[in-house]
Nucleic acid binder design. Structure first.
Length: 203
DNA sequence: AACCCGGACAACCGCCGGGCG
DNA sequence: CCGCCCGGCGGTTGTCCGGGT
């Protein structure tokens, strides 16, 4: 996108607020935007995010769309409830690779680098005491060991309650139930619920 | 009851590398 | 070869909420 490139080059906050800039939305995604993105990808697939954003009619940067899709909307993404096994794996891999979040995330199916990064910073990094018991030098443990060890170190995962936080602004919950109205002209159309309940092979 | 503070998560920002014309 | 664009990555910020005082 033009705006993207401009930023890239001058590396500055938009000095001249062009029309493009004014059109770009930021901040939390609304349910309507999610649905637009989901349906567009369901019908056209991923790729070329800047073009996708424009074609779908989203006033977002391609980057923003990509991030939203990868970290939140993708059907195979798992959010919250990091299991003790996953936690230990994260600690093990982080001790090996450091802050290579995307690399670590690839070892945890359904988890995103963003979530792991957040998890590490908020739950693990800030709780050095509980983590002291973890043997960072040990080779990979078996899953059985994972479970029992993590229970004893007291770092219990807390179920996230983000759902109530989502779509709190200019959206209404009806959008979930209501079918999309715009011209779908024979294309598949998904609600968020439909989408998330689909078995999703591949990406 | 009101306010403050910290935790948790989503989203943005800046940078970099690769692909392509 | 060079410049542009895009995607990916890691760091950081913004926002909401719940608990404590």
């Amino acid at each position: 996108m033009v705006e993207e490139a401009a930023n890239h080059q001058c590396m500055d906050k938009r000095i001249n607020s062009s029309q493009d800039d004014a059109d770009v939305r930021k901040g939390p995604w609304t349910m309507e935007e999610d649905l637009i993105l989901i349906n567009y990808i369901a019908n056209h697939g991923e790729g070329d995010w800047n073009t996708l954003a424009r074609s779908a009619g989203l006033k977002r940067t391609g980057k923003s769309c990509r991030l939203r899709w990868l970290n939140y909307l993708r059907p195979d993404v798992r959010r919250g409830n990091i299991t003790p096994e996953e936690q230990l794996l994260i600690m093990e891999l982080h001790s090996r690779w450091g802050n290579r979040w995307s690399k670590i995330a690839r070892q945890l199916p359904g988890r995103t680098d963003n979530e792991i990064k957040n998890y590490w910073r908020t739950r693990i990094q800030k709780k050095p005491k509980q983590c002291e018991s973890f043997d960072y030098q040990s080779p990979m443990m078996t899953m059985d060991n994972h479970a029992s060890t993590s229970q004893s170190n007291g770092v219990e995962d807390v179920a996230p309650q983000m759902s109530h936080q989502m779509y709190s602004n200019d959206t209404n919950a009806d959008a979930f139930a209501a079918p999309m109205l715009s011209d779908n002209s024979g294309e598949n159309f998904w609600t968020v619920e439909d989408f998330w309940t689909q078995p999703f092979d591949g990406e």
